[in-house]
Design a protein around this nucleic acid. Structure first.
Length: 286
DNA sequence: TAAATCCTGTCA
DNA sequence: TGACAGGATTTA
């Protein structure tokens, strides 16, 4: 799925185009995309409402409606939100279409059908998964100390821990690999074993990787598109993700691929050693 | 902690 | 044909 940068980029685009637009129609092509309601219930709750806010939490896109309801959209692996102008051909893999009061439509497309759109009624409780999310890594609250506290005592691999949305919100497979490379930390290191210096580097690596991704419209190697159907260009700036066998941009060693927590994991075996003392020794030698 | 599940498309 | 893909939840 799109990770934090891809969701954030699209949230900013939607904020610029959707605020104050009224939803005048909804068409559901794949019922299971709508979570917790029938298509008829969903349409009844949404049609006639206008959009008053567009936000993001972790990888969730949040649309607030003028009656206080909340639309929660998670694109999972292959979902996209596309602005669909009147007269244009229907986008491929259309699952849900919202017709707006200016004649355009907002299309939710999703070949793999993993994505979900949920509605929280006015005054209702957001899903438990949202409440359990960890801190937003780009907010001020995400300090090295806060990260250290969340990693303390955890024996699982740091790569797997970074993918746990309750630890840090919004990282996925691309940016977890990129953050660990920036921090020069091996993906299999036990999360609780990182030194304070390593945690501080990791915090910087996470923020840097995410900010770089947002600045480039996200990483597209397959499906991710913005609302104008444009691919993000961050793949050009990625340092290890999907670069197996290619030279490390820092030292020239070959990037390796291993599997951690059932996810492909890319790292530089020279810059991200299993044993951090070897890295310290090399740094001391210059 | 790990696998199965939800799905389809693409590439080797 | 089989492996793999940006994710998260449920089950074992």
């Amino acid at each position: 799925m799109p990770e934090l940068p891809e969701v954030e980029y699209v949230a900013r685009q939607l904020r610029a185009t959707l605020i104050s637009r009224r939803i005048v129609g909804v068409e559901v092509r794949w019922e299971r995309t709508i979570a917790g309601a029938t298509p008829a219930q969903f349409a009844a709750a949404v049609v006639g409402r206008s959009v008053t806010g567009v936000g993001r939490r972790a990888k969730y896109l949040l649309l607030t409606l003028d009656d206080g309801a909340l639309l929660i959209i998670h694109r999972r692996m292959s979902g996209n939100l596309l602005l669909w102008a009147a007269g244009e051909p229907e986008p491929l893999y259309l699952r849900v279409a919202f017709t707006l009061d200016d004649g355009r439509r907002l299309a939710y497309t999703d070949p793999r059908k993993f994505g979900r759109i949920a509605l929280v009624a006015p005054g209702g409780e957001p899903p438990a998964a949202l409440a359990a999310l960890g801190p937003e890594p780009l907010e001020d609250e995400f300090t090295a100390a806060a990260l250290q506290a969340r990693l303390a005592g955890r024996r699982g691999a740091i790569k797997a821990t970074l993918l746990d949305q309750r630890v840090v919100a919004g990282l996925g497979n691309i940016y977890a690999d990129e953050a660990l490379f920036r921090a020069r930390i091996h993906p299999l290191r036990p999360a609780g074993s990182l030194s304070p210096e390593e945690v501080a580097r990791l915090r910087e690596g996470i923020r840097g990787a995410l900010e770089t991704g947002i600045a480039h419209g996200g990483t597209t190697f397959g499906r991710h598109r913005d609302i104008y159907d444009e691919a993000g260009i961050n793949l050009e700036f990625v340092e290890v993700y999907r670069r197996t066998g290619q030279p490390c941009p820092r030292c020239g060693a070959q990037i390796e691929r291993i599997v951690v927590a059932q996810r492909g994991t890319h790292f530089c075996p020279h810059c991200q050693p299993c044993d951090p003392s070897s890295l310290r020794e090399r740094e001391e030698k210059g």
